[in-house]
Simulated scan of single mutants.
Amino acid sequence: MSDAPASILILGTRGIPAAHGGFETFAEKLALFLVARGWQVGVYCQKDVERVGTRFGTRRWNGIELIDVEVVDRGPVSTLEFDWLCVRHAARSKAVCLVLGYNGGAFLPWLRLAGRPILTNMDGIEWKRPKWSMPVRAWFWVNEWIAAWASNRLVADHPIIADHLAT
């Protein structure tokens, strides 16, 4: 048995300290909880820049390793680039990967092929929401499907989402 502390990487948020929404708040509280219990925790943080200088950088915050990933700010495209870069980076680690949301689900098979354990909190059923255009809804549906099959475990934070995922 290894004496190394358990380690986890948190992907799928814009990063911590929380400033954007529910997943960021959850990531922050969970990371602090785990660090207090001896875990090694890394959280990927999107750093929007005009020009990439240093793609990956790290810093510490309250015992948590913050992994800054520079991407050129181009709206939703930069978020996809960020998700892809995080997955590629996480695939080289030995940590469990907790993915919050499935917007970058298309990239999760890369983690699976690398042998990383993947836990995915699937978020809502975004592809059913009429506020999105048909191409965006299709993208969400495909990502949800891929994330569901690529992940080792799915997390649902609402009974309706759990019922949906059971199908």
Rank of each mutant, 00 (worst) to 15 (best):
residue 33 F to L: 12
residue 62 N to L: 14
residue 141 W to F: 14
residue 18 A to T: 07
residue 95 A to R: 05
residue 84 W to R: 13
residue 46 Q to Y: 02
residue 23 F to W: 06
residue 35 V to H: 02
residue 100 L to Q: 14
residue 64 I to K: 01
residue 150 A to L: 06
residue 28 E to M: 07
residue 149 W to E: 13
residue 126 E to T: 06
residue 18 A to L: 07
residue 6 A to D: 08
residue 118 I to E: 04
residue 67 I to Y: 02
residue 132 W to M: 05
residue 129 R to L: 09
residue 138 A to K: 09
residue 140 F to K: 02
residue 19 A to W: 01
residue 34 L to W: 06
residue 110 W to C: 09
residue 120 T to C: 15
residue 111 L to Q: 05
residue 162 A to N: 07
residue 53 G to R: 11
residue 128 K to N: 13
residue 131 K to L: 12
residue 48 D to K: 07
residue 42 G to W: 00
residue 25 T to V: 13
residue 71 V to L: 02
residue 103 N to P: 01
residue 135 P to V: 08
residue 56 F to G: 11
residue 32 L to D: 13
residue 84 W to P: 00
residue 51 R to Y: 05
residue 54 T to P: 04
residue 154 L to M: 09
residue 33 F to P: 00
residue 116 R to S: 03
residue 45 C to S: 12
residue 17 P to F: 03
residue 15 G to S: 10
residue 109 P to C: 07
residue 131 K to D: 14
residue 162 A to H: 10
residue 145 W to D: 12
residue 96 V to P: 00
residue 13 T to R: 00
residue 110 W to H: 13
residue 11 L to R: 01
residue 131 K to V: 13
residue 92 R to W: 00
residue 166 A to G: 15
residue 14 R to G: 14
residue 151 S to P: 03
residue 6 A to Y: 09
residue 132 W to N: 07
residue 118 I to H: 02
residue 34 L to C: 07
residue 79 T to L: 09
residue 154 L to H: 08
residue 100 L to R: 00
residue 159 P to A: 13
residue 49 V to D: 13
residue 3 D to G: 12
residue 29 K to R: 15
residue 65 E to I: 08
residue 9 L to I: 03
residue 108 L to F: 14
residue 73 D to R: 15
residue 70 E to K: 05
residue 19 A to D: 10
residue 20 H to Y: 14
residue 125 I to K: 10
residue 86 C to E: 01
residue 141 W to V: 03
residue 33 F to D: 15
residue 93 S to M: 05
residue 152 N to G: 15
residue 30 L to W: 04
residue 30 L to D: 08
residue 127 W to K: 02
residue 53 G to W: 03
residue 81 E to T: 13
residue 138 A to R: 14
residue 79 T to H: 08
residue 146 I to K: 04
residue 10 I to E: 01
residue 41 V to A: 03
residue 61 W to F: 14
residue 122 M to P: 02
residue 138 A to E: 08
residue 165 L to C: 10
residue 99 V to C: 06
residue 124 G to K: 03
residue 90 A to C: 05
residue 158 H to Q: 13
residue 130 P to S: 09
residue 112 R to Y: 01
residue 85 L to Y: 01
residue 93 S to E: 07
residue 14 R to K: 12
